[in-house]
Simulated scan of single mutants.
Amino acid sequence: MDYAVEIEDLAFSHKDGTRALKGINLRIKKGSKTAILGPNGAGKSTLLLHLNGIYLPQHGRVRVMGLEVNRENEKKIRQTVGLVFQDPDDQVFCTTVWEDVAFGPMNFNLPEDEVQRRVKQALRAVRLEGLEQKMPFHLSYGQRKRVAIAGVLALRPEILVLDEPHAFLDPSSKSELMKIMDGINSEGRTIIVATHDVDFAYEWADDVVIIKDGRVLAQGGPDILSEDKVINESELEYPVLVKLFRKVPEIGYDKMPQFVDEAAELIRQKLNQVKN
């Protein structure tokens, strides 16, 4: 099985009649880092809620790790796909950090020693060791976000899904979160992120999905964020590096740089050519 997620003709309408998804077709590779981009109201969050069975397909099919998302498979799906909401205060509610991270494993009736083991590993993964007995609401917003991630990781999902993980975080917390997600991905887990942050998606993801008006507008590598047609139709902006190199085409490049270090090296080479 090459795909962690397979979606066929997924459509969904809210109770007020609003059509949020209008025939989504999408495949996400196992072990990938996938960013889902799109303007407000595009259907990103609604799509994510289908991946662990909070919403069930009204039309079409959703499979995760080959397993159909339906009421019969609900428990297994929620062990397979861990969902982290945009606002950690929607997910973090216990008296201490330890209790919050242990909540999921305990509700799956795991042995006490296994719960202890999973909580320790999850807190280590998000770099919150030593804060086990702290009250979550005495922590910073970024730390609470990491508590929410730890609570999901303690269930050991094969797929981690995050909705706008960088929302309201300062630059340092964003950088820390990116390192944490990379660490989780390096263990073989698939990570799917819905985001408005084109710079993050361009640098971090190896697969980019752009959604607009409830449909997939484009999917491909991060380089699709440098394509005029895609950016214009999606109502997104070019990543900063793309903007820069489009402004100074005389620098010359075979491929648009994706990382700051890569861009710096191209500029350095150009400067050396001028000097010589």
Rank of each mutant, 00 (worst) to 15 (best):
A122I: 06
K75P: 06
G188F: 10
A264F: 12
I224R: 09
L244H: 04
V5H: 02
P171I: 05
K22I: 03
R146I: 13
P157K: 15
D89F: 08
Y141F: 15
A148S: 08
F245R: 01
K179D: 15
S172K: 07
K22E: 08
H138K: 14
H166M: 15
A264M: 15
T34G: 07
T190D: 03
V274S: 06
K270S: 12
R146Q: 10
S226H: 02
E8I: 00
D206S: 13
G31R: 04
K29N: 05
D223T: 08
D100L: 01
V5S: 07
R246F: 00
M1Y: 04
T34L: 14
L160I: 12
I251T: 03
S234Y: 01
P136G: 11
K76P: 02
E227Y: 00
F93K: 13
G214H: 07
F168W: 06
T34V: 15
G221H: 12
N73K: 06
Y141P: 08
A35N: 10
R118Q: 00
F200N: 05
R117Q: 11
I267Q: 10
E237P: 00
L177I: 12
I180R: 00
A122S: 13
A218P: 02
G104C: 12
V198S: 03
N40T: 01
A150F: 04
L244E: 14
K120C: 11
K229G: 06
D9L: 14
L139S: 13
V152T: 07
R215F: 01
M181Q: 03
G130H: 05
D170I: 10
K275E: 13
N25Y: 10
G82T: 09
Y55C: 14
P57Q: 04
G43R: 03
D228S: 12
Q121C: 09
M65H: 05
P257D: 11
T95E: 13
N276M: 14
P239K: 06
V198P: 01
